[in-house]
Write a protein that binds this DNA or RNA. Structure first.
Lengths: 205, 205
DNA sequence: ACAAAATGAATGAATATTCATTTTTTTTAT
DNA sequence: ATAAAAAAAATGAATATTCATTCATTTTGT
């Protein structure tokens, strides 16, 4: 019995709206897993439906079409990511403290939510997401940009663009996390600490 | 008249084997452009053929099938990238000198060959390339790994894994180049110099 | 005239989407 | 409490389209 048929058993014991929620989640999860394996256009709705344990028609009850499904799964993954990263974001902490906090939260998410991480990396490097939806996804990062803005005002962080700050501090982390997820490179606690120090050193004033 | 029909005129004036070479190149170029716009499974052979100025059947004279086409275009792009990056690679130079040289050659390539850069980024973050072909692509990076190995032996570069060295020095550059290509963030000569300094600082001993 | 290269219409398999029907849940009436 | 009726949710076979690939024919180069 796989993760998906397990859901099916649960369904028997609950009312419709709860069922719907679970079904939708199963579709989302199946989308992430299959798109990670075969790419978006490489995964037919029929396979998606089979893996999610629903019929193809059911998918069209929750989503307008295949593209809408992808867009919504993308936004949901982005929302899940950023809400984890900024969960205990607090503007009362010092910039340095708060940056460290956010950086490690991002690391933690990427370490624990591997399918979402791989999926987002694919979407962010691919033309499959509608441009307006991609823009919408970027908005979710605003707490980090605010933090950097504060850091620059307080002369704690170098006065360089957000893109540079992101390039120096987040992209190395993202790369290492994807390599870790692909079992190409093991990341230890110590390595992660070092990577953080390196990231902070490269943007602090 | 577009870039592609310009090729067609040239063809009239040359022999078959030269023509073949140009046709193959047109197919490769069309593949990169269309995959960049629509993704691999989103680009039908028919459109590919039309853009390249050949008939669908012709593509099958040069490639076994669509997947083989993608794999070969990928390897060709990787080869073009690394042969540019390591064009004047010379083990007689100092490690520091040579790393700076390679780093800026990589930057130059990414800056000048934007379609290839976008294409490679998509392939490297996607399951569309056959795994053995991806592995083959990695081999092309060996001069850089050799350089790092020398640097570690000579106590010039920190004794950390190649993945970490790559994460610290190359991924920020790649990100900035893609953002530059998407017109999201302008990269000046000065910014690039600073980024290099930051990269070298993070791995030098 | 011959050979090599290229063509593009034809084929058959695959796939997104629809919708008439069935199943499940909720509501109503007794 | 129970059963019939209504509503909501889900189904999956059918449809129409799209697409990779082939191959008999044509074009081009020598």
């Amino acid at each position: 019995m796989n993760e998906y048929s397990f859901f099916l058993l649960l369904l028997r014991s609950m009312g419709l709206s709860e069922k719907s929620k679970l079904k939708k989640e199963a579709i989302v999860k199946a989308t992430i897993d299959l798109v990670n394996c075969n790419g978006f256009h490489g995964t037919p709705i029929s396979k998606l439906a089979k893996l999610a344990g629903v019929s193809p028609g059911t998918i069209y009850l929750y989503f307008d079409n295949k593209q809408d499904l992808l867009n919504k799964v993308y936004l949901e993954a982005k929302r899940k990511f950023t809400s984890y990263a900024f969960a205990n974001y607090n503007t009362k902490n010092s910039v340095e403290e708060e940056f460290k906090n956010v950086w490690f939260r991002i690391a933690e998410f990427k370490l624990n939510e591997i399918p979402e991480t791989i999926f987002l990396a694919q979407c962010d490097n691919t033309p499959i997401i509608d441009e307006e939806v991609r823009q919408e996804g970027i908005i979710h990062l605003s707490p980090l940009l605010d933090l950097w803005s504060r850091g620059k005002e307080q002369n704690i962080i170098k006065p360089i663009s957000d893109y540079l700050l992101y390039a120096y501090t987040i992209t190395p982390l993202s790369f290492l996390m994807v390599m870790h997820a692909r079992n190409a490179h093991l990341l230890t606690k110590e390595l992660l600490e070092n990577t953080y120090e390196s990231a902070w050193d490269s943007i602090k004033k």
